[in-house]
Every structure is written in structure tokens, then in C-alpha cells.
């Protein structure tokens, strides 16, 4: 797959910009931002089409950590019904491409989350829910929860709040779709390119490291 035209990366080794400033929001039109006056090269057009397909095929892994996972139930079921947006739950990492980290993450669960994330097929995205994933939230001084998720995994969209309501989640998903369409949600590529940096951080916090270097 040749996706070279999509945005260049932050320099290797620097802290990943999990919450990269969002590009100005377009009108959500069919192929991302406004069409250029001259026709794009066929590669770019192809990349846009691919991204459009990807944005409309979000499969969320049915996994929840922390309190925020409670809000996924109304979101997934009749009350807010996320399938109307084309988002559905899948039971295993091999079948999904969106991982929602729904709140605080114990070091023990971080290990499982890393495992699941690496098993998901690329392209894949992480949506981080709640202030616990951003700066530790109200669990910032807990001996067993991490305080900042983007040191360990690439985050594409943060949804703040404690806990965010399902409406906020819907907004977050729409933002994710917008960013995928524009080719900006490329945390998975950032992860692959800065794997050493991520692995180093992961190994620092997981003291009994027994994972393989990459969980294929």
C-alpha cells in the first residue's frame, strides 16, 4: 500500500503529538477538504478515496477500562445507537480497527491494551476517553494507574470530560472520521515509525515486561 502522500511525520524520537492541533474543520464534504482547483494527481485522489472508505468503516473493539466504559453501552444500544453512524462493535482485536481507551488504565491493563492494539490490523485508531487518559484525572496520584496515555500508545482523538457523555463520544467519532478523511489520523503509522520510543516508555512503566517485541 503506497500512502506516501499523506502528511509527513513529526521528527523521530520527539514526543508524539497525540493531540495534534486539529486542522480547520471542513464542511464534512465527500472527499475531505475543499477540492483543489487543479485536479489532484491520481495517487492523491486514490489516497482520498481510500481514506473516505476507511472513515466509513469503523469497527470498535468491545473492550473497556475505567468508568468511562459505562457510557459505551448507551452509545452502542438503542438510546444513542452508534450503528447509525456506521460504527459497530467487534469482539476481538483481529476484527476491529478502533480501540477506545475509556478512562484510567492500570499498569496491568496497559499491558493487555498494548497487546490488543498491536494485534489489530492497520490502519487503526485510538480514541482516548476522559481526563484520566489525558493527565491522570482524579486518579493522578494512584500508585497503579498511568497518567498520560500518549506516552505508550498513539492517540488520535481525545475526548475530555469525567466522564464524557455519549453525545461527546458521538462528536469525538465524527471528529475522528473527519480526520481520517483528511489523512490526519495516522497515529498507527507514527507508532510504527517511533516504535523504539514507545517501547522504551512501555518498558519503563511495565516492570515485569514479558511481552514479545511486537504482538503480530
Amino acid at each position: 500500500m503506497d500512502d506516501k502522500i499523506v502528511k509527513p511525520e513529526p521528527p523521530l524520537g520527539g514526543p508524539p503529538q497525540g493531540s495534534r492541533p486539529h486542522a480547520p474543520v471542513g464542511d464534512g464534504c465527500f472527499l475531505g477538504e475543499e477540492m483543489k482547483p487543479q485536479a489532484p494527481s491520481y495517487k492523491e485522489a486514490l489516497a482520498r478515496i481510500k481514506n473516505w472508505f476507511r472513515a466509513n468503516s469503523l469497527w470498535v473493539m468491545a473492550y473497556g477500562t475505567g468508568c468511562g466504559a459505562i457510557e459505551l453501552r448507551p452509545l452502542a444500544t438503542a438510546r444513542f445507537d452508534m450503528e447509525r453512524l456506521g460504527i459497530a462493535m467487534r469482539p476481538t482485536p483481529r476484527q476491529s480497527n478502533v480501540l477506545i481507551v475509556s478512562g484510567y488504565l492500570a499498569v496491568k491493563s496497559l499491558k493487555r491494551v498494548i497487546r490488543s492494539y498491536e494485534q489489530m490490523p492497520s490502519p487503526k485508531w485510538i480514541v482516548a476517553l476522559g481526563s484520566c487518559t489525558i493527565n491522570g484525572g482524579m486518579y493522578w496520584d494512584s500508585y497503579n494507574t498511568i497518567n498520560r496515555l500518549d506516552l505508550y500508545l498513539p492517540v488520535d482523538v481525545y475526548i475530555n470530560g469525567c466522564m464524557p457523555r455519549p453525545e461527546a463520544l458521538v462528536a469525538g467519532f465524527q471528529e475522528l472520521m473527519r480526520r481520517i478523511k483528511k489523512g490526519e489520523a495516522d497515529g498507527w503509522r507514527h507508532y510504527m515509525e517511533n516504535l523504539d520510543w514507545y517501547k522504551e516508555n512501555q518498558k519503563k512503566i511495565i516492570t515485569d515486561w514479558d511481552l514479545p517485541e511486537y504482538n503480530w
Binding site: 489525558i134 493522578w140 500508585y143 497518567n147 498520560r148 506516552l151 516508555n201 512503566i205
Partner: peptide, 9 residues
């Protein structure tokens, strides 16, 4: 413990 072992923002 947190200040020593768990990096924050």
C-alpha cells in the same frame, strides 16, 4: 511513588 515512577503531563 507517583512522582518518582509515573510520568504525567
Amino acid at each position: 511513588f507517583v512522582e518518582k515512577h509515573i510520568p504525567g503531563r
